[in-house]
Every structure is written in C-alpha cells, then in structure tokens.
Design a protein around this nucleic acid. Sequence first.
DNA 1: GACTCCTTGTAGCAATTGCTACATGGTATC
DNA 2: GATACCATGTAGCAATTGCTACAAGGAGTC
Lengths: 184, 184
Amino acid sequence: MSVKEEQREVVVERLAAHLLETGLARTSLRQLAQAAGVSDRMLLYYFADKAEVLSAVMARVAGELAMRLAEAIPGDAPLKPAELVRRAAAFTTGPEMRRFMRLWVEVVAAAARDEAPFPAIVSEVMAGFRQWVDARLDLPPGADREGTAAAVIAVIDGLALVDICAEDDIAARMSAALGTLLST
Amino acid sequence: MSVKEEQREVVVERLAAHLLETGLARTSLRQLAQAAGVSDRMLLYYFADKAEVLSAVMARVAGELAMRLAEAIPGDAPLKPAELVRRAAAFTTGPEMRRFMRLWVEVVAAAARDEAPFPAIVSEVMAGFRQWVDARLDLPPGADREGTAAAVIAVIDGLALVDICAEDDIAARMSAALGTLLST
DNA sequence: GACTCCTTGTAGCAATTGCTACATGGTATC
DNA sequence: GATACCATGTAGCAATTGCTACAAGGAGTC
C-alpha cells in the first residue's frame, strides 16, 4: 500500500472519531485537516474533494455502527416488533451508541438540505438499517414487512432525536415509557 | 405601528413561508433578504442580527404549528398514549404538516451543533410539545407522565425523520404499520 | 547524473459569510 | 425654515469557505 493510501486510512480513522465527537459542527476542510493532524493541502491530496472526505469517513462510521448493531442483537432469533424495538432502543440510547445516533440525525438533516454527499450516504445507511431490521423481524405472513421495518426505525431514530434536546433523566425515562407503551 | 415594525411583520411572514418551503438550506442573510423581498441591509435594520431574524421567524412557525396541532386534536378528551400517537402521527405525516416536521428535524440538528439561536428555539418548541402531549394524555395515576410524553414525541419525530429519507409509499405504510405495532 | 514520479509545503484566489460605515432623501416637529 | 429622526441605498471589510497553482525535496530508474 502506498504512503498515500496508508495516510488516507489514518486520516479516515481519526476523522471518524472526530465526527463522532463533535458531529457536523466542525467540518470545514481546514477544521477537518486539523482534527486529522494533517494540512488541508494534504487532505485534498488524499481525497479528491471535501465530499469524498466525508463520504469515506461516513462509510467508516456507518460500518462500525452496523457492526455494533449486528453483535448487540444477533440475527439468529427473530423478535416480535415490539421486542425488537425495546432491545434496539435500549442499545442505541446507551452511552456508547448515543454519539452514533446523534451524528445520524445530523446527517439526515444535512441530506434534507441536499448537501452533498449526505443524500447518498443517507440512502445507503437507511438501506442498511432496513435490512438489519428486516432480518430480525418476526412477523406473521401477510404483514407489511417494509412498512413495519420503517416504523421500527422511526421509533429508534425518534428516541435519538429527542435525546438530543432533552435532559438526561427525561431521556432515560423515555425509553422505559416506550417499553410500556408498546405492551398495552 | 411604525413602518419599521410593519415591515418586520411582513418580513417574518414571508420568511416563515420560505423556511417551510426550503428548510434551513438557504438561510444566509442575503438569501433570506432575497426571499423576503428586501435588501440585506434592511434585514439588519429590522433585526439586530441574523440570530434575531431566525428567532423571530421560528417563533412564528412554531406558533402556527402549535395552533394547528391544537385544533387538529383538541385537548378536551384525553387519549390513551397509543391512540394519541396514532392520531398525531396521521396528522403530522399529512401533506400539509410534513413541511413543519421536516423543518423541525433540521432545527434540532442545528441545535445539536450549538448553532445560535437554535438551541433556545428547540428548548421552547420542545416544551410546547411536551405540554401539548401532557394535556392530551390519558394515563393511569402513578405512571410517568413526563417520560411517556417524551416517548410519544419521540415516535412522532421519528416518523418525520424517516419521512425525510424514504420514498413516499414507504412513508405511508410506515404510519399504518406503526398503528398495528402499537396495538399488539 | 538526468529524468520522472511521489509527496509535501507556501501562497493565494474567487466566492460567500455576517456585519458596518457612511451618505442621503424624506417626514415630522418646533 | 432649521433640526432631528426615520428609512433606505451603496460600498465595503475582515473572516472563512473550497480549491488550485506552483515549487521543491526526495526516491527510484535508466
């Protein structure tokens, strides 16, 4: 692997950490370069342009998110929707995964503005989510699997969104309340 | 009312429409001025700075959202959480209200980045949401009203978020699936 | 040693950003 | 009719944005 490719990897890794920490708030080329410990000139040597930087970094982040989701809730025993939501909610609102979900909300908002390269990223990540849910969903035949999967994702993402703007104790109680809400 | 105050009103009204149409994508001072049909110089004559512009406009938007929510689901007959979610979901995913919810998602994301004046706006709107839900929530005594209200809001907001990045037919089925999800 | 390619630095440019300085025509008040 | 304030335009500034031009050190090849 050439020096260039090695450095690219290093930069992607560091920037993934940076995005998970600070979200999309500091993502100008110069700010990214500083966070990656290189000059902005070199960033544009490793990557074609800013969109490619963000694409590569978000691919890495999405990959890690997918991996963690997969190992947190294995796909070998399908769950009824309510139970799947409960388990996924408990996981994604946990201290480790909140950063991922917060970033995800910001990315969706950026896609809503048509800001490159976020629309494409959102499509891919969303497809991954749907697939993840679908593989774990125990539904009676004839039920709308796609619709149900989207609903499950919506609930999980909604928790993340409210989590951004609620005090900590409310956020914790919200998850609990959701559990009872789903069983009545 | 002075000319200045009148113009302020006109501008706020036009910019509310603009934000509902285009979200936060075109919100530089010059772009806002153009959308409002005034010069950027005059925008800063009517308002102290950009943050004040956005605050005023968002206050207007939030007011209208609150009004529509109030009349769509009156507060005189409290509903069980699942039913409240179902009705609110049907309303907020409707063609008229989607714009509001999409903007709301963008505003929350902006607040996540600590972008003035959005954190303050989010606090206010969120408090309004909580109050709205609380006033319509039929819960047994002893239940966690605040937590449940937050959960209800999360589900509604989650639908809005997924709505941004899903095809239209999926979005429609998602609401339906959520209904069955809540009754099992 | 000449040539070429990979790597990296310095400098800068054109566009956009939020905001300001200054001037000027009105309108109202005395 | 002088004064003062309201309303509005022109021009621009300093900072930040994404990106580029150009040069130069170093490593390998002939």
